[in-house]
Simulated scan of single mutants.
Amino acid sequence: MKTVYVAANALEAHMLADVLKQEGITAQVMGSFLPGAMGELPAAGLVRLDVDEVDFERARAAIARWEATQVAEPATHAARTVVSGSRWRWGLGGLVLGAGLCLAVVRLPTGQTEFDHNRDSLVDERWELSLADQIVGVVQDRNFDSRMDLRLHYDASGVLDTEERDDDFDGQFESRTWYRMNQAQRTEADTDGDRLIDSVTHYTHGVPTRMDTLEPRSGQPVRIEHLRLGRLDKVERDTDLDGVLDTREHYNALGQITRTDRIAPTP
Rank of each mutant, 00 (worst) to 15 (best):
K2A: 15
K2S: 15
V4Q: 04
Y5L: 13
A8G: 15
E12W: 00
E12Y: 02
A13W: 04
H14K: 14
M15D: 09
M15I: 07
L16F: 08
L20I: 06
I25H: 02
V29C: 03
M30P: 11
S32A: 15
G36H: 10
M38L: 15
V47C: 00
V54H: 06
D55I: 00
F56H: 15
F56Y: 13
A61M: 09
A62Y: 01
I63T: 03
R65K: 12
A68C: 03
A68Y: 04
V71L: 08
V82A: 13
S86L: 07
R89M: 09
G93V: 01
V96W: 01
G98I: 09
A99R: 08
G100P: 12
A104Y: 13
F115K: 05
V123Q: 01
V123D: 01
D124S: 12
E125C: 10
W127V: 13
A132E: 04
D133Y: 07
Q134S: 14
Q134D: 06
Q134T: 11
V136P: 06
G137N: 14
V138D: 05
F144P: 03
D145K: 05
D149P: 04
S157I: 02
V159W: 03
L160R: 04
E163G: 09
E164Y: 09
D170E: 12
S175A: 05
S175H: 00
T177N: 06
R180N: 09
N182K: 08
E188R: 08
T191Y: 00
D198S: 02
T201G: 03
Y203K: 12
V207M: 06
T209K: 10
M211Y: 00
Q220L: 09
Q220W: 02
Q220G: 04
P221V: 06
E225N: 13
E225I: 08
H226F: 12
R228P: 12
L229C: 10
G230W: 04
D238A: 08
H250F: 15
N252R: 05
A253T: 15
A253M: 14
G255L: 02
I257P: 07
R259P: 08
D261Y: 04
I263R: 07
P265S: 10
